[in-house]
Computed example of a mutant assay.
Amino acid sequence: MTSPIRKIHFGIADRHQTFRLFDRHAQRPDRWQTDGAKLYAGEWFEIAQAEHDTMLEILPPLWMRGEMFAMREFLTGSITSVFYTLRINGVTRFFHAYCDLSDPRSAYELRDAIVERERRPVKAMTRAERIEHIWSATHDDYRGYASADFRPEHRGKRIVIVYGKPGTLFELLESLSDAQISEKLPVHLRHLPLPEAA
């Protein structure tokens, strides 16, 4: 099964955010027992030119093709970082994505998805993008994975701290209400509309 292509952070990630986003699933409880390929494949976010150029200089790339290059070191299995320099709406921008190189089309499909997503004239965030941004932006102390305190079918799913009455508690990330999502988003992202249905 192919992992969905998804934007995991809004805005241009700074150096600290970039390196944190490279391994945003580091806390998963089965990290050393299972292959995390499905978690990472298809994730992408925007980076600054400085971070793009740094990654190009670290090691010789595995390959370079036009506006993209792939890292020589693989994250897991056939998943590696691909970095893009893309001109979108007249502006040169830089992106990182995790591509599954067992599929020769992966890097191109990611590129096309990024361009399609970022060409939209009006800024908007889908519910899924809001959820992913919350997970990416939440400090490790305030997020985790459902344990034995949750029903068996929810164990291992992502959870985040929610503040309310009678106090703070962990809630399933996927089950957050619209109000909870709004509260957890940074102020500048809270009022972005949901995309209109096609």
Rank of each mutant, 00 (worst) to 15 (best):
R155T: 00
Y40I: 08
E196L: 11
F95E: 02
I181E: 03
E116M: 13
T2Y: 09
F95Q: 02
A179D: 10
D30G: 02
R130S: 06
P61N: 03
V122Y: 14
R28Q: 10
M125I: 07
Q180W: 02
H9R: 03
L185T: 01
I88Q: 00
T85V: 07
P193N: 05
V160F: 09
P121R: 13
A13C: 08
R151S: 05
S175Q: 10
H52P: 03
D100W: 12
W44C: 04
D23K: 02
K38P: 01
E183W: 05
L59C: 06
T92Q: 13
W32K: 12
D14I: 00
I47S: 04
T80A: 11
R127E: 06
I134E: 01
D149V: 00
T34W: 13
A146M: 02
L101K: 07
E183F: 06
F150T: 00
R120N: 04
T76G: 08
P121K: 12
A148P: 00
Q33W: 15
R117W: 10
R72K: 14
A37F: 07
C99W: 07
G167N: 13
N89H: 11
S147M: 01
R24I: 06
A70G: 15
R130Y: 09
T34E: 15
A113N: 12
G42Q: 04
G77H: 09
D100H: 11
A97M: 07
T76R: 12
L62N: 08
K157E: 11
R155S: 00
R105M: 14
L75D: 13
R120D: 07
E118V: 06
D53L: 11
E129T: 11
E116A: 15
A146Q: 00
I12E: 13
G90E: 10
V160R: 01
P152V: 00
T126D: 02
F74D: 13
A41G: 09
E57V: 05
R93T: 10
T34Q: 15
P186Q: 02
E57G: 13
H52M: 08
R190V: 00
E46V: 04
R31K: 13
P166Y: 02
